[in-house]
Design a protein around this nucleic acid. Structure first.
Lengths: 196, 196
DNA sequence: GTCTATATCCAGATAGAC
DNA sequence: GTCTATCTGGATATAGAC
């Protein structure tokens, strides 16, 4: 069912490795993180790491696929529990804000890593399911008459661009307050920009 | 006068190196680019490269400083030639769109490289002068009454977030048409989101 | 200032015992 | 399946002639 290419058996050891790698990759970058670094941080030996993952790239790939799937199902959940484009888009932003506060490393890895550089055959994040889902929410709103007629991708960028920008600023330490504090304000801007 | 830390003498050879490095860094990433790669692409020898730049990081640093300065003066120019926040912000977006089409590598390097990973002591781009200038344009608009009263950084994110998102999509190959084609639409969204 | 040749280091990856 | 010890390549950086 899963369309992943690098399915990895999940054991306590692999979870240790993936957790350590996520932190190191997002703190220092993929290329500044060596296998010995991961060995130390995960308390799993070189041999075991290579037993579970084909190579260093395999760790990143596994991480990426796991997190994309997770986000994908979060968005599906939102689509299932909210009826209007307005409510869905707002819920999506709220979710991203929460996730950024609770698991900044996840957000950093998903949104602000240059995956292309270390997982060469991966499509850009922007074309991954979660991002497509976000655009679909906006398009649905255009069809239902909630959102002005305009180029769909422009509308989606207008709705989510400001929030994504705030997430980046927050992760870069420019924003002091937690993101949810800004939710009402940024949502008002986002919706005004595209509402009929 | 310049506040740079790694001033490099500009000669034809250094320009060759910087040009080649810009292309390689943005196509493959900093860490996937070796000095031998730069030697081949620039037709400048290893010895000369190390003569002009302290090390590989020095090339990236020099590139970064040059491009930040360039963008800084472009924005100053805009501030000088446009009076209102409305006109300034729109001109800034138009400029970024043009630049993305004409020199995608420059834009990629400025906006979507993880500088922190290869220039450790650099502040995040978001705190660099050009980004500060963009925020100042919005704040000025709030003071003049063009822009609604709200948290300044939220307003700035709302104004520029959509456009920056489109730039990213364009650089990632998701958008087929050149960015200027979308300028009117995205600007209408951006301005509606914050106008009084 | 520019080049070639070369030293050094350390990363990624493997072998093979347990 | 898990580990330690080890190999190997290639990258950064230097030496030193021209």
């Amino acid at each position: 069912m899963a369309t992943t290419t690098a399915e990895i058996k999940r054991t306590p050891a692999t979870e240790q490795v993936l957790g350590a790698a996520l932190n190191l990759f997002t703190e220092q970058g993929f290329f500044n993180t060596s296998i010995p670094d991961i060995v130390k941080a995960s308390s799993v030996s070189t041999g075991s790491i290579y037993h579970y993952f084909r190579d260093k790239e395999g760790i990143a790939r596994s991480l990426y696929e796991t997190l994309v799937e997770r986000m994908e199902s979060s968005f599906s959940e939102i689509e299932a529990t909210h009826a209007t484009a307005h409510d869905r888009c707002r819920a999506a932003i709220a979710l991203l804000f929460e996730l950024t506060e609770q698991e900044p490393a996840v957000m950093r890895f998903m949104l602000f890593s240059r995956h292309k550089e270390f997982i060469p055959d991966q499509k850009p994040v922007c074309s991954s399911r979660p991002f497509v889902q976000m655009r679909e929410m906006v398009v649905a709103g255009m069809e239902s008459g909630e959102v002005r007629e305009m180029t769909p991708i422009v509308a989606a960028s207008a709705v989510f661009g400001g929030a994504l920008r705030l997430i980046q600023l927050r992760l870069d330490g420019i924003l002091d307050a937690p993101l949810p504090d800004y939710l009402d304000e940024i949502w008002q801007c986002a919706w005004r920009s595209v509402a009929v």
